[in-house]
Design a protein around this nucleic acid. Structure first.
Lengths: 162, 162
DNA sequence: GTTTTTGGTTGCAATATGAAACCGTATACT
DNA sequence: AGTATACGGTTTCATATTGCAACCAAAAAC
């Protein structure tokens, strides 16, 4: 549960989590990326309570991550689709999926494989890279306080935090 | 709140979220990546309730994402540090931070800049790439059900879900 | 040796979730 | 056309989490 909002924090991670940090949000977005569009798709696939789903969808719409559009097939109902803002969460979803595959996989293996569509091959690991495109070691990734941001109390640039 | 566990789901995203999907987990991991090691670091920086922090840290330790080690500076207390499993969440953190920077930035700009340590330059956007290393359009990323995974009810391979 | 800090734990009140029942409208069936 | 069913919710209630404040023992600081 979140009783406290992260939206007043300056940190972009906190601000992002304010939109997608709820238990179900990222799973709803994942399903939307896989083609779910209707209320019952999300509800049946996730096993989420209907009132909770209503609440999460409303939040995602308010956050500009999804939007309601008329049904694609001429029916009267409306459907839920990702906005560009929502689609750009793909790197987060992919990173989570790959981490899950590697570290906490189900005994039967992953249910979904993320691919390069045209080749059908498994997508290479999403990973930080240098300007020249070379993947880098995590210890070579740094974090620096932006100008004007309040200084942390702890020493922040250890020689090798990894 | 999570009353229902995602750990029985086969989906790697759900399984990953079972470990880091809690409200505070990713912010704690972010702080750990930035050098926080002590209970009070996390507590003061995040403004999280102490009992909640205790609970989240315990969960992260049980999940193998963090571990308690003797203090680095000779004091009697123990410190919380990321395991390799935890450090490999960096792509998730980075992706979230970059999404937040782009879409929901604070009016004063982001508080933290993720960099290539050696050059000090801002880290390029983390993004799905082909085998040859070229960044790809999101619509060229596919998701395919793994063998044996239950079929979704909805049409799953639309021509262009983006 | 006393005070303060640290790292918690223990209630308690507030809030979010899950489950099930209910409901109006839209489809489907005959 | 008329009835049955599916869909997309809303409402109510029990339960689970979080936040807050108070409290506490051990370690550090003075």
């Amino acid at each position: 549960m979140k009783t406290k909002s992260f939206s007043d924090m300056q940190c972009s991670i906190a601000r992002a989590l304010d939109h997608v940090g709820s238990w179900w949000s990222l799973l709803i977005i994942r399903d939307a990326m896989m083609g779910a569009r209707r209320f019952k798709h999300f509800q049946e696939n996730l096993g989420i309570a209907k009132n909770t789903l209503t609440s999460r969808l409303t939040d995602l719409i308010e956050g500009g991550i999804m939007e309601k559009v008329p049904a694609s097939d001429g029916y009267a109902h409306e459907e839920y689709v990702l906005t560009e803002r929502g689609r750009e969460l793909a790197p987060v979803i992919i990173a989570l999926a790959q981490w899950g595959d590697k570290w906490v996989a189900h005994e039967k293996g992953p249910s979904t494989v993320i691919t390069v569509r045209e080749s059908g091959e498994k997508l290479p690991r999403i990973w930080p890279r240098r300007e020249d495109g070379e993947p880098m070691a995590l210890k070579d990734v740094g974090m620096r306080r932006a100008n004007g941001a309040p200084q942390k109390i702890w020493h922040e640039e250890k020689e090798d935090p990894s």
